[in-house]
Design a protein around this nucleic acid. Structure first.
Lengths: 233, 233
DNA sequence: ATTGGAACAATGGTCAGACCAATTAGATCG
DNA sequence: CGATCTAATTGGTCTGACCATTGTTCCAAT
């Protein structure tokens, strides 16, 4: 077994022994290197692997933070998709998102307890407040709302997959295709999704989520048509 | 942009410029560090990322070899989930599959042309024939049918994501949880999905796909209850 | 007492150079 | 010609230093 694989195994044991949870900060690289009897270089190589797998986040000047639960038997699925930044690829990712968003909303309606509902409602109201104040969608508050849904779905895979796709969307989400009022049409569906979730109406929540993505899709198509974007079919 | 992100970008350009194909050997770390004007440490950190993503393979004493095609716009989906051995993880993957399966079926109904429909029908009949001959689901023909659906969805991401997940819990799909007639209940829905797709009824196809996954989920729960599997809630 | 900013310490990021371990290619010898 | 030893190559690890960013502390001005 190579050295830094051993380090990763030791790190798993360490996290288990100290019962570290997502969000916790792990020891500094220097301390780890001393405690595991390897050089800091090797520790860094191992942490780089974990960072690539999304298990850990490093912040210069601050520390290294656990992003997800780790256990000894984990399966890593590095999925890399060749996907351009043209309109067609963007639409493909949106279709994936539609499938996941609908399912996440349905599961959320089934499983969300009072505390999860309160959290979602909080994010919803923050988004609505921001919308009325600035007369437009805030991509950040919008993202927070959806993340709350994914979290309450009880299935961590949703958040993981969508987070990875969101990164791709990110550059477009800021000023997508130059359309200023992008996402305007999707606004009301956030509340309807919440209402269906709060009523524990799984199929209703699924339907509202589908409507929301449909408005985004329409906006995207409109923007692409205006700009003659490459890949437009 | 952090330094080794820049290195990764430069590496992509280098691979493109030299038109390197999978299997080819990249320059040594020392040469790369010199050519990219960064330290070998930084080059190694970048290559470690690529290795984690399965894009590259390093062999000590030999060199670093390209394992997959790389392009500037790639979407990396680092999925890590607890070993598929427990019931909860298996259910999580099934929930993801439900979202994707439903969406793929709907898109397929919208877009499948005559040739795609004929291909799906071929797979369906092969599956049905195998079912009646051996009086049981054949995981291979079943998989072929679903893959045909994903292909006809017109979105390559579906096939890629699901294929990766399928590989992950392949062993369970063969004789999941020891249930012998696993998947028996899902059999009739393959034909109903096909019928809805052939009728270009997107929402109907989505509904049938949801029903199919529901039967699989029920089978899974039944098997787990019988075996007192860990992770059963 | 509060606030603002300046100095400082801690932490991840990068660097240079050396040596180790595995592999490969070439030279050598039977 | 073939097997074997040797040396060069290459990725893996180590050390120690310095840089860039962040968080904290503490003091001065208000």
């Amino acid at each position: 077994m190579s050295r830094d694989d051993a380090v990763l195994k030791a790190l798993v044991d360490f996290v288990a022994h100290e019962s570290l949870a997502p969000g916790d900060r792990l020891p500094t690289e220097r301390i780890l290197s001393e405690r595991l009897k390897v050089s800091r270089t090797t520790v860094r190589e191992a942490l780089t692997r974990w960072e690539g797998l999304g298990l850990v986040e490093r912040r210069q000047g601050s520390g290294t933070y656990l992003k997800a639960a780790v256990s000894r038997d984990m399966l890593h699925l590095p999925l890399t998709l060749a996907s351009g930044n043209d309109f067609r690829s963007l639409m493909h990712t949106l279709e994936i998102r539609r499938g996941l968003e609908a399912e996440a909303a349905a599961l959320c309606a089934k499983r969300a307890g009072p505390s999860e509902l309160a959290f979602i409602r909080e994010k919803l109201e923050a988004m609505e407040e921001s919308f009325h104040r600035r007369d437009g969608m805030s991509s950040e508050e919008d993202w927070d709302f959806h993340q709350a849904i994914y979290q309450a779905s009880g299935n961590p895979l949703f958040a993981q997959i969508i987070a990875a796709m969101h990164e791709m969307f990110h550059r477009f989400w800021e000023h997508p295709l130059g359309v200023h009022d992008f996402g305007h049409a999707s606004f009301p569906y956030h509340r309807t999704i919440y209402e269906r979730v709060a009523a524990h109406d799984a199929e209703g929540a699924r339907a509202e989520a589908l409507k929301l993505i449909a408005t985004v899709e329409a906006d995207l198509k409109r923007g692409a048509a205006n700009l003659n974007l490459p890949g437009l079919t």
